[in-house]
Design a protein around this nucleic acid. Structure first.
Lengths: 354, 354
DNA sequence: TTTAAATGTGTCATCGATGACACATGATGA
DNA sequence: TCATCATGTGTCATCGATGACACATTTAAA
C-alpha cells in the first residue's frame, strides 16, 4: 500500500489540505476540533510527507552531494562523510555520496548527477578538477571544499598539516631521534587543480623540514621518500609504504624513526619492519597521519589525527549556511592533533643497533 | 543561474515541450529540422533534466536506500555499499546510506526517512529489527537483506559462513595445527530479529566445529572465546580481540593457531601477540574473516574473504528486479573464499615453543 | 456601535517532466 | 477517390505539497 497523500488525509478528516498542512507545520490557526480530527486521520493513514513533491514545490531537495575518493581504500573519507551525514540528518537533510577515485571524468559525472538530482549544495573532499567545482557553481549550487581545495573560487575547510607534521617531528626529536625519515606521496602529483595551491603533501613535508630545523637536526634527502600512493588500483594496501620502508632499511645508516603522511603508508611500513624482524618502538619509532588505521595496527600507532568529525560537521553546517544565503568563511583551517600511542619511544642507543 | 527547464528549451527552439521530450528520449517522430533546433537549444541552455520533477511524475525516485552499521568501524559495510552504488550508478540510480550502528530505533528512523524520500527499494546490510523491514514493506517498498537477514519475509543474499570457516580450519589442520582457537562475537547477541534465524557467528562457529571434527581434532571449549565485539563505543579498535588473545596466551597449553571471525578481531589479536613478542606465523598462525583490514596488517593476514562486490552488485540487481515486479530468489547464498597470505604457516614443533 | 484585529478554513496556481491524446499532413494502396 | 497508415507536432492533466490569497466569523479596541 502506497503511503497516503495530504489530500487523502484531508478527506478522511473532512477538512481541506491547507488545514492538514497547518497541523503538520504547527503554524497558522487551527481549531481544536479540526486539529484532533486531522491528527486522528494522520495516525490512521500513517501519513508520511512526500519529500519528492516537497522538493519540487520548494525548489529545494534537502539533499546535499558529497564527493570523495578512495572510499574502499582509505577510511578517512568515509569518516568525514559520516559526520557530515550525521549533521545533515539533524537538519532533515540527506547526503548523496559519489566516489570518483581521483578521476576527473568520474568527478564530472558525479557533478552532473548532483545537478540532475538538484542537490542543494555539494561537499568536496579531495577535489580533483576545479572545472567540476565551476560546473556546480554555474548551476547555482554552493560548493564547500574539505581537506583539499582545488580552487579559491569556493570556500574551503582545511587542516593545519604543517603544524601537525611539525609536532610529530618535535615529539620524535624529543625522544632523542636524530635520523628521522619521511614517507609520503608525490607532492607534485597530489597538488591539484589551480597550480598555486600547495598540496597537503607539501604542507606535511614543510612541517617535517621545519621540525627538523627547530630541533637542530640536519635534513638528509636520502631519508625523504616520496611516491604516489593514491594508486587505488594496487588495492590501497600500503604497498608504497612497504617499498619505501624496505629502501630505508637498506640504507647504510638507517633511520631510527619514521614519519609517514598517512596511516596506510605507515601500515605498509610496519609490514616491512615486521618482515625484517625489528621491533617497534624498541628498534624503530613510527608516526602516522590521519588516525584511521592507527588504533588497529600492532603496535597501536602514534599518529597525527585529523579532525574528521569537525571536518564533516563544519562542512555540512557551512554548506547549510551557504544554502541559506548567509556569508561563509572563505578558508577555515582546523588544527591536527598528535595522538600518542605505542609506536614511539626513545631512540635506541647507537651501539645497541641490530 | 538555475538549470533551465524543458519549457525554456522548447521556447528557445520554437517547439513544444513534447517535441523536446521526444528528442531527449529518442523515441517518437521528430523531423530533422526540429531535432537540430532542439539540439541546439539543449546545448545552448545546458539543459539537465530535473530528477525531482521526474520522480514526482513517474512515482519513482530512481533512488534506493541502503541501511548499514559500523560505517566508521568496519570497512565491510562500506565496501558492500560501494559496489551496490556502483551497480546503481550504471542504471541511473543513486543510493542513500543510513548508518544505524546496530540500534533498532536508529534503524527505524532510517526506514522512515527512506519512506519519506520515496526510495524505490531498500537494501539492508546487517538488519537489526524485522519490524523495520516490515515498515518498509507496508509502504510497498521492496526490501533485500544482505549478509545478515532479520526475517524470512523479505529476500536475502547471504554468504556461506559455515563453509568459509570450515575451509579456514581445514587449512590450519593441514599445516599441522592441533590446538586451534576461535575468537568470535557472542552468537546469541548477534542473532537478530526472528529468533529462528541462525546468526553469522553461529554459522562460523559451526564451521569451526565441523572443521575440527573432519580433521579428527577434539573440540576444547577453553579455546572458544566469544563476546560482543560490535561495541562501536569502544572505538571499534578490536579491543575484544586483544583481550581474548591475551586470555588465550595465558592458557597453560597455548593454541598454535587462531581463527577470528572478523579481521578487526584478528587485528586486536595481533596486537596482543605482538605485545608478547611472539612471531606470526612462526610461533602462531592466525586467520581472519571478511578481508577488510587483512592486507594492511603485519603480517598480511590469511583471511576468509567475503564476496563484498557480489553482495553489493547482486543486492542492487535484485532490488531492481523487485522494483520492476520481477520475481526474485528468496534466499541466495554466495561462497566465501579463503585468501592465503602470510599469517599462516606450519605448526611449530612442540619443543621449540618459547 | 463601529472598526480593526484575531481566529479559522478553503481554493488554487505552482514547481517540471511525462505521456496520453488529439490533430494535423502527406504518402500509399485498394 | 477514399481509406489507411506513417509521420510530425502540440495540448494538457497529472504527480503531491505548499503557501499566497480570499473569505469567513468572532473578539477586542475605539
Amino acid at each position: 500500500m502506497k503511503p497516503s497523500t495530504l489530500m487523502e488525509v484531508a478527506q478522511r478528516a473532512g477538512v481541506s489540505t491547507a488545514t492538514v498542512a497547518r497541523v503538520l507545520k504547527a503554524k497558522g490557526y487551527v481549531s481544536d476540533v479540526a486539529r484532533s480530527r486531522v491528527e486522528a486521520a494522520l495516525k490512521a493513514t500513517g501519513y508520511r510527507p512526500n519529500a519528492v513533491a516537497r522538493g519540487l514545490r520548494q525548489q529545494r531537495s534537502f539533499t546535499i552531494g558529497h564527493m570523495l575518493t578512495a572510499i574502499t581504500a582509505n577510511p578517512f573519507f568515509v569518516n568525514v562523510a559520516h559526520w557530515a551525514e550525521e549533521a545533515a540528518l539533524a537538519e532533515g537533510y540527506k547526503t548523496f555520496l559519489f566516489n570518483h577515485d581521483g578521476n576527473p571524468e568520474r568527478e564530472r559525472l558525479g557533478a552532473e548527477r548532483f545537478i540532475e538530482r538538484r542537490v542543494d549544495a555539494v561537499l568536496f573532499t579531495n577535489a580533483v578538477d576545479s572545472r567540476n567545482v565551476q560546473l556546480l557553481r554555474e548551476a547555482s549550487i554552493p560548493v564547500i571544499q574539505l581537506e583539499r581545495a582545488a580552487t579559491i573560487e569556493a570556500p574551503s575547510i582545511r587542516v593545519d598539516n604543517q603544524t601537525g607534521a611539525l609536532e610529530a617531528i618535535a615529539h620524535l626529536a624529543e625522544l632523542g631521534h636524530r635520523r628521522i625519515a619521511f614517507i609520503g606521496g608525490d607532492p607534485n602529483l597530489i597538488r591539484r587543480g589551480d597550480s598555486h595551491f600547495t598540496s597537503v603533501e607539501e604542507e606535511r613535508l614543510a612541517g617535517y623540514r621545519i621540525g627538523l630545523r627547530q630541533a637542530g637536526l640536519p635534513v638528509d634527502e636520502a631519508l625523504i621518500r616520496l611516491g604516489l600512493y593514491y594508486s587505488i588500483a594496487d588495492g590501497g594496501s600500503g604497498i608504497e609504504g612497504y617499498k619505501h620502508m624496505k629502501a630505508l632499511l637498506a640504507l647504510p645508516e638507517r633511520p631510527t624513526a619514521i614519519f609517514a603522511t598517512c596511516d596506510i603508508l605507515a601500515a605498509g611500513a610496519l609490514q616491512a619492519i615486521y618482515e625484517e624482524g625489528l621491533r617497534v618502538p624498541h628498534d624503530l619509532s613510527i608516526i602516522g597521519f590521519d588516525d584511521t588505521l592507527a588504533a588497529n595496527l600492532a603496535p597501536q600507532l602514534t599518529t597525527v589525527a585529523q579532525p574528521m568529525e569537525d571536518l564533516g560537521r563544519l562542512g555540512f553546517r557551512t554548506a547549510l549556511a551557504a544554502i541559506e544565503g548567509e556569508s561563509v568563511p572563505n578558508d577555515l583551517v582546523l588544527p591536527a592533533r598528535l595522538v600518542l600511542r605505542r609506536s614511539t619511544g626513545p631512540a635506541p642507543h647507537p651501539n645497541s643497533r641490530r
